[in-house]
């Protein structure tokens, strides 16, 4: 399949600090790619390199079959992390201006803008000034600005930051719709769950280097055989029978966001399947499963906790 984005050995430094270090990237057309990593990892710089807003010190880059995004910019939609609008401009004028800059004729742009704003729950905002809109509304307006020209490649830098849960859901639906239309999606986030939910493939970046490039499907299949999650029918029930099982090393209340329950940590030498059955027999349960490895865990595993702490302190 032809690649939407293809980068080879990208390097970009600022004042001697390597923000992006020998990065390889291949995003097939029609795919949804997630860019994850802590703040300051190099995500935004990589995106700016792909967008030809910055230029690499070395390395090769192809975007939508063109030598740079520069030549293909009419076919790319971009929502930068630092989102801005002309505060005094009216919403419809702003959207129209962006669309015209990307070569969409005025009547078509108006028609699409009205439709997309309505889809995002923004009614009667066209004639308002940008400064009169709330932050969440503005963010949706800016998203409309990024997709108004029906781009083949949609690059979103931290699209969900600062949004309320309802807006997040609406935006996720819009991103899925764009994907169905056939657009290739690349978005960055530091919230791993969002990447897991929306992406085919996840690229992890740490200190400008790629530390992981893996499909979310494969990642999901990676279970942690040493951790079993279970939820009793009655949370008040006594869990002593489970604690008494020979293969259970430790038992604790699980509060990782997967709902109420307990997490049993198994001894290294015991049979995980047998342990699963034993726990199921010990108590009436509503849920029983091996813990899935979360991107957070994988990430910390990959880069090491010390390195991450050091990095975050450096960034702060």
């Amino acid at each position: 399949m032809e690649q939407a984005v293809c980068a080879r050995q990208l390097v970009k430094s600022f004042n001697g600090n390597k923000a992006v270090d020998q990065l390889d990237l291949e995003i097939p057309r029609g795919a949804a790619w997630g860019f994850i990593g802590p703040s300051g990892a190099g995500k935004t710089t990589t995106i700016r390199l792909i967008m030809s807003i910055l230029f690499p010190d070395s390395g090769a880059l192809q975007v939508l079959g063109c030598a740079s995004a520069f030549a293909a910019r009419q076919r790319i939609g971009y929502l930068p992390e630092e989102r801005g609008v002309y505060r005094k401009m009216r919403v419809d004028e702003f959207l129209l201006y962006l669309a015209q800059l990307r070569g969409v004729a005025e009547p078509l742009a108006r028609q699409r803008a009205g439709k997309l704003l309505a889809q995002l729950g923004l009614v009667d905002v066209e004639r308002k000034r940008c400064e009169d809109l709330s932050k969440g509304m503005l963010q949706r307006v800016q998203f409309v600005g990024a997709i108004l020209h029906e781009p083949e490649l949609l690059i979103l830098d931290e699209p969900f930051s600062g949004l309320d849960p309802i807006s997040v859901r609406t935006l996720k639906d819009m991103i899925r719709a764009e994907r169905q239309r056939g657009a290739t999606i690349l978005f960055s986030t530091h919230v791993m769950a969002q990447a897991e939910e929306l992406c085919d493939q996840v690229v992890m970046i740490h200190k400008g280097r790629k530390v992981l490039d893996e499909s979310t499907q494969r990642l999901r299949r990676q279970f942690d055989q040493r951790r079993i999650l279970f939820e009793p029918l009655d949370m008040q029930a006594d869990v002593a029978p489970v604690r008494a099982l020979p293969c259970v090393a430790a038992l604790q209340i699980n509060d990782n966001g997967y709902g109420n329950g307990y997490e049993a940590r198994l001894r290294e030498d015991c049979d995980a399947q047998a342990a699963l059955q034993a726990i199921g027999a010990a108590l009436p349960l509503v849920r029983l499963e091996f813990a899935r490895r979360r991107l957070e865990d994988i990430f910390i595993n990959l880069v090491g906790e010390d390195s991450l702490r050091e990095h975050l302190q450096g960034a702060a």
Binding site: M51, I53, F70, R73, I76, Y78, L79, P80, E82, R83, G84, V85, Y86, R87, L98, L101, R102, Q142, G145
Partner: peptide, 16 residues
């Protein structure tokens, strides 16, 4: 104004 309102990065994705 374009710089401080950060609209410039959106513009730069459409014009050189």
């Amino acid at each position: 104004e374009e710089k401080s309102s950060r609209v410039v990065e959106v513009l730069l994705s459409a014009v050189s």
